[in-house]
Design a protein around this nucleic acid. Structure first.
Length: 320
DNA sequence: CGTGTTTGACCAGCGC
DNA sequence: GCGCTGGTCAAACACG
């Protein structure tokens, strides 16, 4: 419990996250979302195109966000003073979801460089997943039918190389925020220094090896940290990749907090979804079947032709 | 029956 | 080398 100040962000520290988006060119640095074009360029590496105009949203100074600050903010003092207008929408309110997304990006090129020298130029067509994802286990296991390798025998000698990752720090009561894709949970682990478990999800698209981790801040249980890893290699239900860019898609939303601005892929939850969420998850619940349903409600984007899907992807393109 | 979650076990990386 | 921790696998299970 001691030194818990940053405990909830341990993952960043251990993952060598670092403040300093300035080095956008420096492929050896991790990126941290601040306010301007820099982030955009970084995000674009992921296939995310964020309008630069996002600066100044909410009239806040869109400066850098340093991890320490985030940590402390999570402790409770963060940007309540500056909630994005969008969030004040009835839906968000209804579901008691105060979303304050922060985007944190980690460029793993430092790790991947060994295998992938020009990470930064990773063209979006490259299913980054197979190019790296470490562990090899999941990647190769997915790509190659479980012969004998799959049987828990991870390829030895293969280094675990992470992909570029970016995290959303969101204040929400929903653990698994809808982001436009469908995810399958493949694991859950208790995290050191945190009473909350970390959940591991993988994109349900068999060809897409994007993963994400979801965990709650130990400092502020109302804060959810969602870390994405890899790029979606498909249009799926509709997320910024290739043509599905926020500028043209209604679900793009950028935010700002007192110290910086952030982007959340989908803060504008479909009405019907909001309702279902509200009904199924009145409170934060981390375990039990309740969570199960809760997650279903939030992770399965009302594939009913409306909401997320209806907004963006024509029925024929759905492949979640 | 198909899809997704739960959960214990296994493995790799890292620090000491 | 050892122990800890994070990440993943896969069988069992639950649900619609």
């Amino acid at each position: 419990m001691d030194g818990k100040a940053k405990a909830d962000f341990d993952f960043t520290a251990k993952s060598s996250w670092e403040v300093g988006g300035e080095d956008a060119d420096n492929s050896n640095h991790d990126y941290f979302f601040g306010s301007d074009y820099k982030e955009n360029s970084i995000l674009s590496e992921f296939g995310w195109n964020i309008p630069a105009e996002s600066s100044g949203v909410c009239g806040c100074d869109g400066g850098f966000v340093d991890y320490d600050r985030i940590g402390s903010d999570l402790a409770g003092s963060r940007a309540d003073d500056c909630v994005p207008a969008d969030i004040s929408a009835p839906q968000a309110d209804d579901i008691s979801r105060s979303i304050e997304p922060m985007v944190v990006v980690e460029d793993n090129s430092s790790l991947a460089s060994a295998m992938k020298p020009s990470m930064s130029s990773s063209s979006s067509e490259e299913p980054a997943e197979n190019s790296t994802v470490s562990g090899g286990s999941s990647a190769s296991a997915a790509a190659n039918p479980p012969s004998e390798t799959a049987s828990k025998t991870k390829k030895k000698g293969q280094k675990r190389i992470r992909q570029q990752r970016f995290a959303f720090v969101t204040k929400s009561e929903i653990d698994h925020l809808e982001d436009g894709y469908r995810w399958r949970k493949y694991g859950q682990k208790a995290v050191k220094n945190s009473p909350f478990p970390r959940s591991y999800y993988r994109c349900t698209n068999s060809k897409c090896l994007v993963k994400k981790r979801v965990e709650r801040s130990s400092e502020d249980p109302s804060v959810v940290i969602t870390t994405y890893e890899g790029q979606h290699s498909h249009h799926s239900i509709g997320f910024p990749r290739g043509g599905l860019v926020p500028q043209e898609v209604p679900f793009g939303r950028h935010f700002a907090t007192s110290n910086s601005q952030f982007y959340h892929p989908r803060l504008h939850y479909p009405r019907e979804n909001s309702l279902s969420i509200r009904q199924s998850s009145p409170n934060i619940q981390v375990k039990g079947r309740e969570t199960h349903k809760e997650q279903e409600a939030s992770s399965q984007p009302t594939v009913t032709g409306e909401g997320l899907l209806g907004d963006i992807v024509p029925p024929g393109m759905r492949n979640g």
